[in-house]
Design a protein around this nucleic acid. Structure first.
Length: 572
RNA sequence: UGGGGUGUCGCCAAGCGGCAAGGCACGGGACUUUGACUCCCGCAUUCGUAGGUUCGAAUCCUGCCACCCCAGCCA
């Protein structure tokens, strides 16, 4: 796939190069990808996965996979498994090892005791509301907690009893003793530990106090000897606290360097958990792996490839500027990758019968077609050809506009890999609907034959009717119609009922009612032997992958992405 | 209004004092037994803005403007 060492550099790698040049860490590089197992991954996670794993590869270093499971009320084993699967599917290995923050709980507890003994942390009895009220505001300093100056002995006693389960949830917390007047809110005596009497998916009821992110993350990085801790922009304000914990916990010899980068955003794609959950639970999609979902699972089922996703992340680039990548770039990457790797095949989505009046009744020829025009090594396949065929309904027009290269009364087209045919008559039903085309074949024009040199403007895909495989094709389009007219709505407080309702209404009104169209067509016989997950380019139609919903003899194909279509622009 | 960040073509993004890379999108053309692919050509006298320093600035300095993040016992 990608060669991390050959990739163009970015600001993060420039920093690492400088660190290396300065002789830091003895030339050792170690990163970590630290997800909280609280949901399914989406395309946005790909960026963080790529930068961490590729950085390790680039510098012959290691990358750890670490589940940051410090909040038992949100995490589940199901997500741990899904995340591991997604990372491996993308082609990465946690060369540095697999870790869980929860495995460090004993160590974190010991370090908390150390902070208390050193006078760097204290047990605070203020309620959540009181802590909030005394934290100050963006422009006013906070005020010290009345419990701030408790003795080490009292703190030790109280913290020990917190761990022992003597106090109810929310009654006390352990706080770092830093500076209630700091302009950085994170430094106003941040909570380090809270009491939560909830079973943890890995440690069960062994603990009832759990460390907070800022405290835990530093220790995790410190213990694993991470050299560069890469995270997203919103943690910039946390860096001073990250460094503070690192120092107070004794990770003072070349502590990890935290570097922040901008998250990946995509046009016409919303990736918040609340939004995705609403789509699933509201029945707007079939599930977390619905091919329209921005989840890795959805994209996988849609037929997107790991190579395409990684190429996309690479092309989007790495910077600190808030940005929104164009969904068109993702589709381009998918087309480019599939164009090179997917076997070609023919399938007709909306069939129109064609009868070749001068082709002998009952005669079936076997034609040989290439599986890929640029890769002869992908071989050839045999395709039957006979008197009755199906072509795409939209490839025929009774009264065509100029520049229409397809079939029309009196017009000629080549059938891909077969013969040139002329349309003699369009048979209609009582409603005037065209039901069948009667055509004549130019028997001298067979592909590969002597008369094949004759040129006609258009070439159509087709399927021999007698042994066509009936199939269901699911045609997907973007879930959202356009960008939000009111950007403010996106910034609405997710926690407030009003904000949530407004957002819900907002994105539901943006849902594209045509995001899924199911059509029943016919595929060439070869496709009857396909397996779920196989990817093809249906000539002139698009890239498709066989869905797991397929049954023997009744394949279902998901359209991964359409082919670029410059004709539709001309036609308009 | 405090602090931390970011502003280079429609969308991303290089650039780090010497005279604006590249990709996507878009427009034009060639080729084509996929109106696909491929291939040519075009696409910022200008770098949020106003000044300043300099022979010379997107790159240095100053002011201003815009946007993002921070007042969870979430991560």
């Amino acid at each position: 796939m990608q060669d991390a060492k050959a990739m163009r550099t970015n600001f993060i790698w420039d920093i690492i190069d400088a660190d290396l040049a300065a002789g830091k860490n003895g030339g050792r590089i170690q990163t970590r990808f630290p997800p909280e197992p609280n949901g399914y991954f989406h395309i946005g996670h790909c960026k963080a996965i790529c930068i961490n794993f590729l950085t390790a590869e680039r510098y012959d270093g290691l990358c750890n996979l670490r589940f940051d499971d410090t909040n038992p009320s949100k995490e589940e084993t199901e997500y741990v498994e899904a995340i591991k699967h997604d990372i491996q599917w993308l082609g990465f290995e946690w060369t540095g090892g697999l870790y869980y923050a929860s495995d460090y709980f004993p160590k974190m507890y010991e370090l908390a005791l150390r902070l208390i003994r050193n006078g760097d942390a204290y047990v605070c009895d203020l309620t959540q509301e009181e802590i909030r009220a005394t934290r100050g505001t963006l422009t006013e300093p906070g005020t010290n907690s009345p419990y701030r100056d408790r003795s080490v002995e009292e703190n030790l006693d109280l913290f020990t009893r917190m761990k022992a389960g003597e106090f109810p949830d929310g009654s006390r917390v352990l706080r770092g003793k830093i500076d209630m007047a700091s302009p950085n809110m994170n430094l106003r005596d941040p909570v380090l530990y809270r009491i939560v009497h909830t079973d943890h998916h890995r440690t069960g009821d062994a603990w009832c106090i759990y460390p907070m992110y800022d405290y835990a993350h530093s220790i995790e990085d410190g213990l694993e000897r991470i050299t560069h801790s890469l995270c997203s922009l919103e943690f910039e304000n946390h860096r001073p606290l990250y460094d503070w914990v690192m120092e107070k916990c004794g990770f003072t010899v070349e502590p990890p360097r935290q570097i922040e980068f901008a998250r990946l955003n995509l046009t016409r794609t919303v990736m918040s958990k609340r939004y995705m959950r609403e789509l699933v639970e509201g029945g707007h999609v079939a599930g977390w792996d619905d091919p329209r979902m921005p989840t890795i699972a959805g994209m996988r089922r849609r037929g997107y490839t790991p190579a395409a996703l990684r190429d996309f992340v690479d092309r989007v680039g790495m910077s600190k500027a808030d940005s929104v990548a164009d969904i068109g770039l993702l589709e381009h990457c998918v087309r480019e990758n599939l164009g090179d790797t997917a076997a070609r095949a023919m399938a007709v989505l909306r069939p129109l019968k064609v009868v070749l009046t001068n082709w002998p009744e009952g005669q079936v020829d076997t034609l040989t077609l290439e599986n890929h025009p640029d890769h002869p090594e992908m071989g050839e396949r045999l395709v039957p050809f006979g008197r009755e065929l199906y072509i795409e309904r939209e490839d025929f027009m009774e009264n065509p506009p100029k520049k229409f290269f397809r079939l029309f009364p009196g017009g000629e087209v080549r059938l891909k890999g077969a013969y040139i045919i002329r349309c003699d008559e369009a048979v209609k039903d009582a409603q005037g609907e065209v039901t069948e085309l009667r055509c004549t074949v130019d028997l001298d024009s067979k592909s590969g034959g002597e008369g094949a040199a004759r040129k006609v403007k258009g070439t159509l895909h087709w399927v021999h009717a007698a042994d066509a495989v009936p199939m269901e094709a699911r045609l997907y389009e973007l879930l959202l119609n356009d960008e939000p007219a009111d950007v403010e709505a996106e910034a609405e407080d997710e926690e407030s009922a009003v904000g949530a309702a407004r957002n819900k209404k907002d994105f539901i009104s943006r849902l594209n009612p045509a995001s899924l169209e199911i059509v029943r067509g016919f595929a060439e016989p070869t496709l009857g032997n396909a397996n779920p997950g196989d990817r093809f380019q249906f000539l002139r139609v698009g890239y498709f992958t066989m869905d797991p919903d397929s049954k023997p003899g009744a394949p279902v194909f998901n359209r991964t992405v359409s082919l670029k279509d410059s004709w539709s622009k001309v036609a308009k």
